[in-house]
């Protein structure tokens, strides 16, 4: 472990720069950041952590450095949760996504602080991004019971058959979250995946994982069944391949993979024909994630099921 120390300004009541013990200063309580898997908060099975710093390089926390076995456990948890979550009513899923927004609303200050530190942006800008992220939960919450209506179809086949196409969740989705949008980008890739009933294993931004790990704490108190969202911190390069190769993962979102890694992972994903969301040009840089998200991400992670039934007396 190396690097500067003395960061975490947001946790010390004492202004930075002062030193020594003062009886009136209260020493802050650090948070141990942990993974969020199956609704629980484990450490990495590997026992590894890595140092997370702010934009200036000051130490913020030690985050778990997840291993491929953590990824495996997260997939197991996500698969276990899939039946219940995909089988829940759309109304119920919408209520829960909205509940996430409600829970976040009360913790805006905390997330604004974490995002400011993680992304090295001024506090007001960070607060705006947190607000946008909360609003994004609300946007997707409302989609839960509408996506079937815009993506489904009643098909007028030339015969005595009732024929209906409906979107269904693809299954377990591995998500490499955006690298440079620690919270708004993160929410923008998780919410569209789970609103339709998928369950996800998310690899948080390697450089800025803390808002993601904190999100786990919010999700745990939002009636979201354990395992629907599983959050890992660590290296996309280390976790991406086992997830891309995993035979029980149905889709992979490569948003957070850089060029070469994305190609490698897409190739690996072919082993069981995972659905692949390639990184999009608009997913990083200025203004990324601030635009209207549209329906693309939701619709990329559903399967159209078409049911025929004979019609006769």
């Amino acid at each position: 472990m190396s690097g500067k120390t003395g960061g975490r300004s947001h946790r010390n009541v004492k202004p930075e720069g002062q030193s020594g013990m003062n009886a009136v200063d209260r020493l802050s309580v650090f948070k141990t950041y942990k993974l969020f898997v199956g609704g629980k908060f484990p450490r990495s099975e590997s026992g590894r952590v890595y140092e997370v710093t702010d934009a200036q390089g000051a130490w913020l926390a030690n985050a778990p450095l997840s291993s491929r076995k953590d990824a495996r456990d997260a997939v197991v948890a996500a698969r276990k949760a899939f039946g219940g979550w995909s089988g829940a009513t759309a109304y119920n899923r919408g209520q829960i996504l909205y509940r996430v927004a409600e829970m976040l609303e009360g913790r805006r200050e905390q997330f604004a602080t974490e995002v400011a530190a993680a992304e090295g942006i001024p506090r007001p800008k960070a607060a705006a991004r947190v607000n946008a992220a909360i609003d994004r939960w609300v946007w997707y919450a409302g989609w839960s019971d509408k996506v079937t209506q815009i993506a489904g179809a009643a098909n007028p086949v030339a015969g005595p058959y009732f024929n209906l196409s409906t979107p269904e969740p693809t299954g377990v989705v591995a998500v490499l979250a955006p690298r440079d949008s620690s919270f708004l980008g993160l929410v923008s890739v998780i919410a569209p995946a789970i609103v339709t009933g998928n369950t996800v294993v998310v690899v948080a931004s390697e450089q800025a994982p803390l808002p993601a790990l904190s999100l786990g704490e919010v999700l745990a108190t939002s009636d979201l069944p354990g395992g629907v969202v599983n959050i890992l911190s660590g290296k996309a390069a280390e976790l991406g391949l086992p997830l891309a190769l995993h035979q029980d993962v149905n889709a992979i979102d490569l948003t957070g993979a850089d060029g070469e890694l994305a190609v490698e992972l897409e190739r690996a994903a072919a082993e069981n024909l995972k659905r692949v969301l390639r990184p999009q040009p608009g997913d990083s840089g200025k203004g990324a994630w601030s635009a209207d998200p549209g329906t693309g991400r939701m619709l990329a992670l559903v399967e159209t099921k078409t049911v025929w039934h004979s019609m006769g007396v």
């Binding site: 179809a153 098909n155 086949v157 024929n163 399967e303 159209t304 078409t306 049911v307 025929w308 039934h309």
Partner: peptide, 21 residues
């Protein structure tokens, strides 16, 4: 991707066709 109920192997241009997994 296609479930046939009390029928099988029916295709139609208006009816989406394709698989899961």
């Amino acid at each position: 991707g296609i479930v046939w109920s009390n029928t099988f192997n029916k295709l139609d241009p208006t009816s989406p066709f394709g698989g899961y997994k």
